[in-house]
Design a protein around this nucleic acid. Sequence first.
DNA 1: GTGTGACTTGGAGTCCGTG
DNA 2: ACACGGACTCCAAGTCACA
Lengths: 77, 77
Amino acid sequence: MMKDKEPALVRLGENIRLIRKEKGISQEELAHQACLDRTYVSGVERGDRNPTVLSSLKIAKALDVDLAELVKEVTSA
Amino acid sequence: MMKDKEPALVRLGENIRLIRKEKGISQEELAHQACLDRTYVSGVERGDRNPTVLSSLKIAKALDVDLAELVKEVTSA
DNA sequence: GTGTGACTTGGAGTCCGTG
DNA sequence: ACACGGACTCCAAGTCACA
């Protein structure tokens, strides 16, 4: 069963993954920096999760970018 | 007992309230446009709530701005 | 028109594992 | 190093009455 994903969350995940790759760090390392679970970060990057503002902020901080940068082009259908 | 609020969420709420005032609409009207409860929007504006990305996106759309606009200057401590 | 406390339910976020 | 699942805890979602 494929769960249908929210385009906005998929885009958010893509943004995060792209920036993470640029920083050259692993999901595990990002998760550790953000004080989040590695499986959770994985789910966010895949667009399977709908993080809170505070969690998103943790990820942004771990990636050393503004939250606004993370949600670029994240728009509703 | 005053609950201590997250500065990031307080800032988010301020941003929302400011943009809402600029549009000249009430919380009730904003809530209606965003398909959210009036008291929920009230809680977000006061920084008492930690909304998800999807909820924040609903509000952004109702205010006719990008999500990035809503989270401007929303930073962690 | 808005702030706020209280409440139920679903999902955010964790921890264990697998390939 | 990552995708994905199951089972869990706890908080966000969503609503109400009242000030």
